[in-house]
Write a protein that binds this DNA or RNA. Structure first.
Length: 668
DNA sequence: GTAAGGCCCGTTTTT
DNA sequence: CGGGCCTTAC
C-alpha cells in the first residue's frame, strides 16, 4: 500500500492522514468519500494502530461489507480483528459480551417489526385493551419514539403507558430485544456500569462513523460515550444528504459534534468526481434553496455534459414505456450495459408500471423493495423453530410455530396456556411442559400427544445444538422433517405444486445460508444464535448484491443513496410526489428534507439525467393532472431540455398479459 | 378448528 | 384495483 498515494487531492490527503483527535469530514456527493475512508483505515494500519483498536460504524450491512472488502483489497491483509459494523450489529455485540449486566442472557432474540407487532397485540389482549389492528403500527412507532427519547408521554392516554410497560416487561421476560433496544440498552449499560464503558473505551481507541448525517441522537450518544476520553473520533457525512429524519436521524448531530469536540478539525471535500458539470450545476442550484445547511459548493473540472431532459409523458404507462424504450435505445446506440441505468422513485407504489414496461421489453432489472427474503412466511416459520431452539423463553416465536403445522392447539388451548404461564410465572414453553406433566384436564388426547411430541422435538434439538462443533444446518433439515413442516407446506399448497417447490426452495436457501455461515473459516462466531441475530438485521438491500449483474436498477431514492449510475431516470417529478404530499403537512423543515431527497436523486447520475413529469396520473379512483414539482423551477432552465413523448397505444390484451407475467414473477 | 367469502382500507421513506 | 383482515358458515 502506497503511503502517500498520488491520486488523492489535498483535502482527501489531509483527511487520510489526520488520525488523531476529533475530525469532521464534510463529504459532498461524489467527492470520493468511500475512498477516503478506506485509505484512512489503511493508513491507520500502516502506522501500526492495531486492528482491534479500530471501530468503524456504518448504516447498512452492505456499506460495512463494502468498506471491509475495500480495505482488505487495499492492504492485502486479513482483517480478523477490525470491527466494521452497523450501529445495530455493534449493539448486538455489546449486549452479547456484556448484556448480563442488564439481565440479558447471551442467547437473546432480536424482534423485528413484525414480531414486535405480534407482541404488542398479545400484550394488549392480556390487558384487555381493544385495538384496531391498523392502529398498532402507529402505536409501535410512538413507542419507538418514546424509547429513543424523541418524544415524551405528554398528551398520551394512560392505556398507552400501561401497554408500553407491559410490552417492555414481556421483552425482558422473553430474553428478547427490539431494534431500539440495540441502541438504547448499550447506552443504559454504559451509564450504569462505568467499568464496562471503560473497557470499551480502552479497546476502541479509534472510531470512525460513516453517513454521520443519518445518525440519531442516541447513536451519537453511544459514539460520544466511547470517544469522550481518547477523542479519536472521525465522523464523515453530508448534511445535504440527510434523508432519514423520520427515522430519528438528526443532521444537527453535526452541530452537536462541534459543540462536544470544540478542538475538532474540519475538512470539506468539495471536488466531485462523479457527475458532469451540468448535472452538478443543477444539483447546486437546487440545494442552495435550503436554509439550514453547511456552506459548500461542489465543483468539477469536467465542464458541460448532456442537458438534463425533462420529459412529459401522457400518463404513467407512457412514462414507463418511454423509460424502457430509452434504455433499449441507449444500450444499442451508446453501447451501454443494463447496469448503467438507474430508475429512481419517491415511493414504492410507483414501481408497478415500470416493472411491467421493463418486463414487456425484456429488460432485466432488479428492484429494491417488496418483502425481503427473510420476511416470507415459510422462512420466518423456520427461523421461529430455530429461535425457539436457541431461546426457549421466546414466547412470540413459540406461539408462531406451536400450531404450525396444525397440532390441534386452538383458541381454547391458548387460553389455558396463557393462564398457566401467568399463574406460575413460566414462559409458554415451560407452561406447555407443565400442562403436559400435570395432566391438566380439558385437552383432548390427540392434541396432548401431538403437543408432547412437539415439545420433545424442540428439547431434543436444544440438546443437540449444545454439542460442541455441531453443524446446525443439517440438524435443521431433520428438525423440519420430523416436525412435519414439509408435509404441512405440501398440504397448504395442495393446489399449486409450483408454490410448494418455491417455498421449499426458499427454506433450502436459508439453510444453505446457515451452512455457509457455519463453515466460513473467517467467522469468529459461527453459532446458530449469532446467525439468527445477524439475519434479523439484514434488510432487502443487503441481499440484492447477490443477484446478477447486468440489470437495470429500480429503487426508491432512499435506497439509492451511496450508489451511482451513468444514466438516471427520476420518475414522477411532480407536485404531491416530490415533495410528497404526506410529508408537506409536517412543516417547513420537511420540505427541506424533500429537497435533499431530490438532491440525492440528481447526484446519483454521472452522465445523463432524465426527469419525467406526467400530464395525467391515475391514483386509486381519480385521474388528475399533476403540476410539475416546485423543485423543477429551482433548476436553471438553460440546463434543461423539455420534450413530449410520442405515444403508442398498448392494447388491452398486452396489458393483461403483462399483468399476468408480473404476478408470475412476484409469486411463482 | 378450518375454509371460504366479504368488506374495508390504503399509498412515504426503513435500520 | 388489489390485498389483507375479519366475520360467518360448516
Amino acid at each position: 500500500m502506497p503511503s502517500s498515494p498520488p491520486d488523492l487531492n489535498p483535502e482527501q490527503y489531509e483527511a487520510v492522514h489526520t488520525l488523531h483527535g476529533p475530525l469532521l469530514i464534510i463529504a459532498g456527493a461524489g467527492s470520493g468519500k468511500t475512498r477516503v475512508i478506506t485509505y484512512r483505515i489503511a493508513q491507520m494500519l500502516e502506522e501500526h494502530i492495531p486492528q482491534n483498536a479500530i471501530l468503524a460504524l456504518t448504516f447498512t450491512n452492505k456499506a460495512a461489507r463494502e468498506m471491509e472488502q475495500r480495505v482488505k483489497e487495499l492492504t492485502g491483509r486479513k482483517l480478523t480483528n477490525l470491527t466494521v459494523s452497523t450501529f445495530h450489529a455493534f449493539g448486538v455485540q455489546v449486549l452479547r459480551e456484556s448484556g448480563s449486566a442488564l439481565g440479558y442472557r447471551d442467547n437473546f432474540t432480536i424482534y423485528d417489526t413484525e414480531d414486535c407487532l405480534t407482541l404488542l397485540k398479545s400484550c394488549a389482549h392480556e390487558l384487555g385493551q381493544v385495538w384496531e389492528s391498523k392502529d398498532l403500527p402507529d402505536v409501535a412507532q410512538l413507542f419507538s419514539a418514546i424509547k429513543t427519547g424523541r418524544r415524551g408521554w405528554e398528551g398520551e392516554p394512560a392505556e398507552y403507558r400501561e401497554l408500553y410497560r407491559e410490552y417492555g416487561e414481556h421483552l425482558l421476560l422473553y430474553n428478547a430485544v427490539d431494534f431500539d433496544d440495540l441502541i438504547m440498552k448499550p447506552i443504559e449499560m454504559f451509564s450504569t456500569h462505568p467499568e464496562i464503558l471503560d473497557a470499551y473505551r480502552k479497546r476502541y481507541r479509534y472510531i470512525l462513523v460513516d453517513e454521520f448525517q443519518d445518525t440519531s441522537i442516541s447513536q451519537f450518544e453511544i459514539v460520544r460515550l466511547l470517544a469522550d476520553e481518547h477523542r479519536n473520533l472521525c465522523v464523515v457525512g453530508d448534511d445535504d444528504q440527510s434523508i432519514y429524519s423520520w427515522r430519528g436521524a438528526n443532521f444537527e448531530n453535526i452541530v452537536l459534534f462541534e459543540r462536544h469536540f470544540p478542538e475538532r478539525k474540519e475538512i470539506k471535500l468539495e471536488q466531485n468526481y462523479r457527475s458532469t458539470g451540468i448535472i452538478l450545476a443543477a444539483a447546486n442550484a437546487l440545494i442552495v434553496h435550503n436554509t439550514n445547511r453547511k456552506e459548500k459548493a461542489l465543483w468539477t473540472p469536467t465542464e458541460g455534459g448532456k442537458s438534463i431532459e425533462v420529459i412529459h409523458p401522457v400518463d404513467e404507462t407512457d412514462e414507463a414505456r418511454f423509460i424502457a424504450e430509452t434504455i433499449k435505445t441507449l444500450k444499442f446506440r451508446e453501447n451501454r450495459t443494463y447496469d448503467d441505468f438507474g430508475i429512481l422513485v419517491r415511493t414504492n407504489s410507483l414501481t408497478k408500471h415500470l416493472e411491467m414496461a421493463l418486463l414487456h421489453h425484456n429488460i432485466p432489472y432488479k428492484v429494491s423493495g417488496g418483502t425481503s427474503f427473510f420476511q416470507r412466511k415459510e422462512v420466518k416459520d423456520v427461523i421461529a423453530y430455530l429461535r425457539l431452539v436457541v431461546n426457549p423463553s421466546d414466547d412470540v416465536n413459540f406461539l408462531r410455530i406451536l400450531n404450525t403445522p396444525r397440532r390441534g392447539a386452538g383458541r381454547q388451548f391458548l387460553e389455558l396456556l396463557v393462564a398457566v404461564s401467568r399463574a406460575k410465572s413460566l414462559c409458554h414453553f415451560d407452561a406447555l411442559k407443565d400442562i403436559l406433566v400435570t395432566q391438566q384436564s380439558g385437552v383432548p388426547d390427540e392434541t396432548r400427544a401431538e403437543l408432547a411430541a412437539f415439545m420433545e422435538l424442540i428439547e431434543e434439538y436444544q440438546t443437540r445444538s449444545r454439542r460442541p462443533r455441531v453443524k446446525m444446518a443439517p440438524q435443521a433439515r431433520e428438525l423440519l422433517e420430523e416436525a412435519g413442516y414439509y408435509e404441512y407446506l405440501a398440504l397448504e399448497n395442495a393446489k399449486s405444486d409450483k408454490a410448494f417447490r418455491w417455498k421449499t426452495q426458499n427454506i433450502e436457501s436459508l439453510l444453505k445460508f446457515l451452512e455457509d455461515w457455519e463453515t466460513d473459516p473467517d467467522n469468529s462466531r459461527p453459532d446458530l444464535g449469532s446467525f439468527l441475530n445477524r439475519i434479523t438485521l439484514i434488510t432487502r438491500d443487503d441481499l440484492n448484491d447477490r443477484e446478477e449483474k447486468g440489470a437495470v436498477s429500480l429503487m426508491t431514492i432512499h435506497a439509492s443513496k451511496g450508489l451511482e449510475f451513468k444514466v438516471v431516470f427520476v420518475v414522477g417529478v411532480e407536485d404531491k410526489i416530490m415533495p410528497h404530499e404526506k410529508s408537506l403537512a409536517e412543516g417547513p423543515e420537511v420540505l427541506e428534507e424533500e429537497r435533499r431527497l431530490f438532491y440525492v436523486a440528481i447526484t446519483r447520475a454521472r452522465e445523463k439525467l432524465y426527469l419525467t413529469v406526467c400530464r395525467t396520473r391515475r391514483t386509486l379512483k381519480e385521474t388528475f393532472h399533476p403540476a410539475p414539482s416546485p423543485f423543477l423551477e429551482e433548476l436553471p432552465t438553460e440546463l434543461l431540455q423539455e420534450s413530449e413523448t410520442q405515444q403508442e397505444d398498448v392494447t388491452e390484451e398486452d396489458w393483461d398479459d403483462l399483468m399476468a407475467s408480473l404476478k408470475k414473477k412476484m409469486q411463482p
